[in-house]
């Protein structure tokens, strides 16, 4: 365990060097929220005060704000590229001989980066939250509040596992850049980063709820915004945990298959 903590500390230091990058990304997210606010304002004007799938103007911008903050923590697209590139370049050899577990190492690295990312996102969004404070609408019951970090952490783990799983395809494909781009686009939609998933009609939403994707970002965001019944919350948490186990197992299997094929090319 101690060596993971060491990795965490080391990565936090290196991540601080990239803080400019994080600040900039979060700034871009703030702009995106502004774009969404403008868009939804016009939409609600045109809807003449009716609610849209249970959202009013205030709750929808609350959704977007918290969605972007959470997404800064759970969005781990880059790790897929990293793993895929290492496998392609044959740099895998270096890490295979280390006593630390390969993915454990990467998760710790990701965690430290994402914590910093989250912190900066929170800071960047404070002016937005303050500016719009009267407008925000959060329905999360106080009791559920302490479960929020658990949910968010599970979201990160899920997102991490999904990205790793897809990156393992590089064992069998040569060109992965386009695949990753496609993955990013689809994942954005499926995890609620384009719009809240409960905009979908009922049956479609139910179908999504058994897949892991919406639990990466949408689930915690809607937990804060619209609020979930205790039953819905526990159901969601349970599905998160099940998928974490399933994906972990899948990764182990595919990893072993991939390593068999892996001949250390590119070294």
């Amino acid at each position: 365990m101690r060596k993971y903590v060491q990795v965490l500390k080391l990565n936090l230091q290196t991540s601080l060097a990239y803080k400019g990058n994080f600040i900039f990304t979060s700034l871009m997210d703030v702009f995106r929220v502004i774009a969404e606010i403008a868009f939804w304002k016009v939409l609600f004007d045109n809807a003449q005060g009716r609610k849209i799938n249970g959202y009013n103007f205030n709750s929808i911008i609350t959704y977007y704000i918290f969605m972007f903050i959470i997404a800064s923590f759970t969005n781990v697209g880059s790790i897929g590229y990293k793993v895929a590139n290492e496998i392609k370049d044959g740099a895998l050899n270096n890490l295979l001989v280390r006593p630390i577990h390969y993915f454990g190492y990467y998760f710790t690295e990701t965690l430290s980066q994402k914590l910093l990312n989250l912190l900066i996102a929170l800071l960047m969004f404070i002016p937005v939250i303050v500016f719009r404070f009267g407008d925000l609408q959060a329905e999360i019951p106080a009791a559920q509040f302490c479960l929020l970090p658990v949910v968010v952490l599970c979201s990160l783990i899920l997102s991490f596992l999904i990205n790793i799983l897809i990156s393992l395809f590089v064992f069998w494909m040569t060109e992965v850049a386009s695949l990753f781009l496609l993955k990013d686009i689809l994942l954005d939609l499926a995890s609620g980063r384009v719009f809240p998933l409960d905009l979908f009609p009922g049956p479609l939403l139910n179908a999504f709820s058994v897949l892991p994707f919406m639990y990466c970002t949408y689930f915690p965001a809607v937990m804060i915004t619209k609020g979930l019944s205790a039953e819905a919350l526990y159901r969601g948490l349970w599905i998160q945990l099940v998928w974490i186990l399933v994906l972990y197992g899948l990764i182990k299997i595919i990893w072993r298959m991939g390593l068999k094929k892996y001949t250390g090319t590119g070294a």
Binding site: V42, L43, N46, R50, N53, V194, F195, L199, F200
Partner: peptide, 12 residues
């Protein structure tokens, strides 16, 4: 997204 939006309004 647009399709879903326009199930709620006629014009934007």
């Amino acid at each position: 997204f647009m399709h879903l939006v326009f199930t709620n309004v006629d014009t934007l």
